[in-house]
Write a protein that binds this DNA or RNA. Structure first.
Lengths: 109, 109
DNA sequence: CCTCGGTACTCGGTGTTACTATGTACTAGT
DNA sequence: ACTAGTACATAGTAACACCGAGTACCGAGG
């Protein structure tokens, strides 16, 4: 992914993480690893932790500490009702954007 | 569109405008009006003009002054080769994102 | 005449976000 | 003791969309 990706990820990355959490609860390190697996190779760890702190402060997720066998305790995030609502809104905006861009791409030839 | 849209537009708006310019040359006011027609009701004029100045300075577009019958002269923007390349890169990143999000959305049910 | 609305572009300041780089801390294996 | 892997946090930076205001040019109605 090029440098444009940095700007394009703004707002979207949050939606991606919330969508991941809507599938099942997860902790930061796990989410970072999952993103890397999915091709987001150059997303820095710090970015994810900062994002998680943000959505925690906005109370879109519930947090629970869980011990780890191989390191410091994990912070497990669970999407709550407010977060689900926010995610729905994200999908609406995302759909709107994809529709517009689809049109533009098709109109291009 | 909700408040999330502001962040989600970052980077994407630039791609949208470049895509519009790839269809045919246009000037700022025209682009703003076009966006409003396409449903982007709350995009501020100032945002578009600032964006146009940016892509001009990065030499993604060629600029030409053209007189208007009903106001100050227009600045007509034309996508150049460098801009087309940048737009291609945008589409690649966009496709990547849509694919990932498609998976996440489907996995959700 | 001159104000008003539509056309057309510019600019300074603000908030949010992802990135970089660094630091802390716990565990297991060598 | 050292290293690597796990797990989280934070201070500083750059980029971008937004807001508000301003400039300027034109035609029509009061």
């Amino acid at each position: 992914m090029g440098k444009q990706a940095t700007e394009m990820l703004k707002g979207v990355l949050e939606g991606i993480v919330l969508a991941m959490l809507s599938l099942r609860p997860a902790y930061g390190y796990e989410i970072t690893a999952g993103l890397r697996d999915q091709g987001f190779r150059d997303i820095a760890e710090g970015t994810i932790y900062a994002l998680l702190l943000r959505i925690e402060q906005r109370q879109l997720v519930d947090v629970e500490k869980a011990p780890s066998e191989k390191g410091p305790p994990r912070k497990v995030y669970t999407l709550n009702a407010q977060g689900q609502e926010y995610l729905d809104e994200f999908w609406r905006t995302w759909s709107f954007l994809t529709e517009r861009l689809e049109e533009l791409r098709d109109g291009g030839k």
